[in-house]
Structure formats: structure tokens, C-alpha cells
Computed example of a mutant assay.
Amino acid sequence: MPPTYHVDTISVDTTSVDRPRADQLEYWCERISSFHCTANSRVLRPDDFQGRATCQRTRSYQLVTWGVSTPQWVQRTKRHIHTGPDERYRFVVTTRGTLALRHAGNQRMLTVGTGALFTTNTPFDLGVGSRHKGMILTMPRREIDHRLGRGALLNTEMDLTRGLGRLIHTSLVTLKTERHTLTATQFDRASQHLTDLVCLLALGDTQPPTSHAREIEIQIRQHIRGNARDPRLNTESIAQALGWSQRQIQTVLRQAGTTPSELIRQERLHYAQQQLENPANVHKTITQIAYESGFNSAHTFTKAFRQHFGHTPKDHRDH
């Protein structure tokens, strides 16, 4: 099936007498958990709480924007993770007030113009102050691991006030502003582009890698990204081009939680996705796009595309 796109908005005001305060707070906490993941949630000043949140989502990506009048605290424990695992990554941004994030043994205080990347498959505590506003972009784990390596660069505070960071912030705001004009494909493509930018910013905000293995991994990823459309690209050709042994390349990528063939397949699929969405390619057949993307047959391409995106190339183009 082609991707579907949903927009949901919730609003709560405990100063109103229309509904009992306890019912409103329970509704708010349950809906926020449904947007993200199971967790303990508590409003610290319930008597005058006002909250509003909007969730834009497809099967692959999600953007939640929110604003609250009084402090709120959220905690996800090992028990929550055991009963409701969720390996997706979150990129959290503060647009007003402050947000405290304790995750994987580190604590960050995010102020206006900062963001951080984290996963909800590790216990965390998150607290926001009065008159807080923020955004959380949810991204598939494979998209982050593919670019940064598994478990890399979590909790790194990122500056969103200038350069690439400012571009990310502006794009997130625009994605929310234009929420009712977007299609599922447009939302996914914009979110995928934002994922690329977040990863670039994360890499730029860290010190150059000191590990030789990490240096090799980065060069392998760069080589694959630049040559994925070549049907002859494989572990042997990568090793020859970079001057390392095949075993060394396989070992480095295994430590990063992936393989050469997986990286090659993902880059080819991303290129093919762009070609399917390009109106200039409407005359091209699925088979042509498959070969131009580096696949050796339309059958192999269609099978890989369905496994990765959840629908066929034809459905993607028709939608």
C-alpha cells in the first residue's frame, strides 16, 4: 500500500469547567504517550494547565509540536521498554523555555535554539518548564544507523541558531506550518531530507574521530554513497578503491551494526525513490529505474523496495 499521512491535534485546558480536571489530564497524558511511546507522565501544576499538541505522521516519520503552560515530567523506564520497545530515534528541539533530558547516563539542558538526538529504547527522564514549546522529529533507526553508525552521537547538543542548524530549525517549523498541504510522499521526503541534515550537523558538531576503525567506516560510507549506482559495487571493489582488505571492511562495518551489502542497498533505494518521485522520469519504466539505481533486475529492486518502504515502486509512483 502507498504511504498514508495523518494530522492530529489535541488541546486541554484545566481552567475550563467543561470537563473534570482529572479527565482532561488523563486524556492529555494518554494522547502524548500514544504519539511517542509508553511512559510515566505527570503535570506538576494541574490546576491551571493548558496544553496543545499536533502530530503529523506516516508509517516512517513523525513530527510532534507542542506547547504547555506549566511544567511537565515524562519518564520511560526499563519496564516500559520491555512491554513497548521502540528503537526509533528522536530529534528534540526547544523553541521556547527549557527542556531537561537525562538519557544514557548524560544530562542535557536544552534552551531555545538547541536540539539533541536520542532513542526511547533506553530509559530516560524528560522535563519541560513553564510556557514551554518544542518539537520532536521521529526517524527510523535504520536511517540514523546507516549514516552515523549504531548508537553514535546520542545526546550531543546541537546549535540550531546558525548555518546548517538554523536551516534544520526553519525546515521543521515549515513542515509544521504546511501540515495540511502536504501529501504522505512529500512529508516523508522532507523528513528524510531533515534526517540527512541532522546527521550532517551531528557529525560536524563532534570532534574528528580518533579511532582508526571509525575513520575507515566514514570513508567506506562516503565511497558507497558516491558509487552506489554502479552495479559492480561490492565489498571487493570497495576494498580495492580504498586500499584495505575485504575482511577489514567487513569487520569495521560489523562493529557499526551493518554490512557493505546493506549500505549499498539502502543508497540504491534512496536514489530510486528520488527517481520515482521526479516528474521528469514519468516516461521511465520501473525496470529502467531499477537498472539506473544499480539493481540487477526489476524483481530484486521491487522486493527490496517493498521490504524497506512497505509498498511497491509502482504504488509509490502512482501515489
Rank of each mutant, 00 (worst) to 15 (best):
139 M>G: 01
61 Y>S: 07
111 T>M: 08
53 A>E: 12
135 M>C: 07
114 T>K: 12
79 R>M: 14
50 Q>T: 10
312 T>L: 07
132 H>T: 08
64 V>G: 02
228 A>T: 00
88 R>T: 07
54 T>D: 05
286 I>C: 12
70 T>R: 15
177 T>A: 13
196 D>T: 12
267 E>C: 06
249 I>T: 11
207 Q>E: 11
245 S>I: 03
112 V>N: 00
18 D>H: 13
155 N>I: 06
255 Q>Y: 13
47 D>T: 11
62 Q>D: 04
170 T>D: 15
181 T>V: 07
30 E>W: 04
37 C>I: 13
27 Y>G: 07
218 I>A: 14
141 R>H: 10
274 Q>W: 03
217 E>A: 08
131 R>S: 06
24 Q>T: 03
10 I>Y: 11
14 T>P: 00
249 I>F: 07
112 V>T: 03
203 L>M: 14
233 L>D: 10
281 N>E: 11
103 H>G: 01
13 D>V: 04
222 Q>V: 11
186 Q>L: 01
228 A>C: 04
160 L>I: 01
142 R>L: 13
292 E>I: 04
197 L>R: 09
19 R>Y: 10
124 F>I: 04
243 G>A: 08
233 L>V: 08
244 W>E: 00
39 A>T: 10
116 A>P: 05
205 D>T: 11
212 H>I: 09
186 Q>H: 00
288 Q>L: 06
199 C>L: 10
197 L>S: 09
91 F>Q: 01
137 L>K: 01
172 L>P: 02
234 N>W: 02
131 R>V: 03
151 G>C: 09
227 N>H: 15
198 V>S: 04
51 G>P: 00
220 I>K: 04
139 M>A: 05
107 Q>F: 11
109 M>N: 12
157 E>F: 02
294 G>V: 02
152 A>R: 14
25 L>W: 06
240 Q>F: 10
267 E>H: 11
81 I>T: 15
81 I>K: 13
94 T>H: 01
74 V>E: 06
132 H>D: 01
75 Q>M: 13
253 L>P: 02
41 S>V: 06
217 E>I: 02
284 K>P: 00
20 P>N: 05
119 T>A: 14
